[in-house]
C-alpha cells in the first residue's frame, strides 16, 4: 500500500535526529533598531507543562531570513503594509467612509492585534481580526466584504499587526471565549489524515527537528501575517493552517471556517507573552 510507505518515511524523517543541529538559536530581534520583540518567554500556564518555553518562529529560520525582518526596508511584507495604509485612508462603500473616518491613524489601533481573536458580545461569537474588518466594511462602511484570504485582507491585517509590534500577545481564553478555545485545543491535539499527525506531533513534540528539509518551529502565529519566501507574498494564519492540514493528507478546512477560527484562538493563546511580530519573514 502506497500510504503505508509514506507514513513509514514520514515517521523515519520525524524521529531522525541525525539531521543538522536542531534547536532555536540565541539571537535577539530588534526591528529598525528600536522595536524590541520578545521572541522567547515562559510558556503560559494553560499549556500545563507541555512546553516550558515558547519561542517565535523567527528563531527557526536561518541568519539571512532573520536579517530580512530586522529592517522595515529589508522586509518585503512592508510593501503590502504601505498599500494597506493607502487603503486605510481611501473612502469605500455607500456610507462614504474610509477606515480613517472612524479609527483615525493606523497607529491609533496599537494593541488591537494583540488581543485577537476575541469574543464579540454583540455578535455572540469569537471573531478573528479579518472577520471584524469585514464586519466594519459591510455594516459601517456599506462596502463589500473582502475575500477572507485575499490580498487586501492580508495586507490590512499586516498593517494592524505592524502597529502593535513589540506588544505582548494576550488573547482571552476564559469567559465566553472558553468554549471556542476548548474546541481549538481539541483540534490541535487530534491526529488526522493519512499521515496521522496532529499539530502537536510536529510543533510540540518535534520543534527544532527537521521534517525533510524544513526546520520545524513551535507553530506560533504571533508573526502572522507572514511574508513567505516560498510564495513571495503575505500569508494569513488560516492559509497556513489549511496547508498544514492538507499536508497530513486530510481533507482540509476553509479559511474563515469555524474550525480555523477556534484553532486560531487556541494557537494564538499558545503564544501569549510573545510579542506581536507581524508582518514577519518566514520560509
Amino acid at each position: 500500500m502506497k500510504f503505508k510507505a509514506l507514513t513509514a518515511v514520514a515517521a523515519l524523517m520525524l524521529t531522525s535526529t541525525v539531521a543538522v543541529a536542531g534547536g532555536a538559536d540565541d539571537d535577539s530581534l530588534v526591528i529598525n533598531g528600536d522595536i524590541e520583540i520578545v521572541t522567547k518567554t515562559a510558556a503560559p500556564a494553560h499549556l500545563d507543562g507541555h512546553l516550558d518555553e515558547i519561542i517565535s518562529g523567527w528563531h527557526f529560520r536561518d541568519n539571512e531570513t532573520q536579517a530580512m525582518e530586522m529592517d522595515d526596508f529589508d522586509n518585503p511584507g512592508m510593501i503590502f503594509v504601505d498599500q494597506a495604509r493607502e487603503t486605510w485612508a481611501t473612502v469605500d462603500g455607500s456610507e462614504g467612509k474610509s477606515c480613517a473616518s472612524c479609527h483615525g491613524e493606523p497607529e491609533d489601533m496599537a494593541g488591537v492585534k494583540a488581543v485577537y481573536p476575541k469574543w464579540n458580545e454583540g455578535a455572540g461569537e469569537v471573531r478573528t481580526l479579518v472577520m471584524q474588518i469585514n464586519d466594519c466594511r459591510t455594516t459601517r462602511m456599506g462596502a463589500d466584504a473582502w475575500k477572507y484570504d485575499g490580498g487586501d485582507t492580508t495586507a490590512m491585517e499586516a498593517l494592524l499587526a505592524s502597529v502593535s509590534r513589540g506588544m505582548p500577545v494576550n488573547v482571552a481564553i476564559d469567559g465566553p471565549a472558553a468554549a471556542t478555545w476548548e474546541k481549538g485545543k481539541e483540534l490541535y491535539y487530534t491526529r488526522t489524515g493519512i499521515l496521522d499527525l496532529s499539530c502537536a506531533s510536529c510543533h510540540e513534540q518535534n520543534y527544532g527537528n527537521y521534517i525533510r528539509a524544513d526546520h520545524l518551529s513551535q507553530g506560533q502565529i504571533n508573526g502572522f501575517p507572514a511574508y513567505r519566501l516560498k510564495n513571495a507574498k503575505l500569508n494569513g494564519a488560516h492559509n497556513r493552517f489549511k496547508g498544514c492540514v492538507r499536508d497530513t493528507r486530510a481533507e482540509t478546512y476553509k479559511e474563515g471556517s469555524p474550525e480555523f477560527i477556534a484553532l486560531e484562538l487556541y494557537v494564538a493563546s499558545r503564544g501569549n507573552g510573545l510579542s506581536v511580530e507581524g508582518p514577519s519573514v518566514r520560509n
Binding site: C202, A213, K230, G243
Partner: peptide
Amino acid sequence: VTIGGCGG
C-alpha cells in the same frame, strides 16, 4: 537548494 518539508 532543498526540496522543502511540509511547506503548507
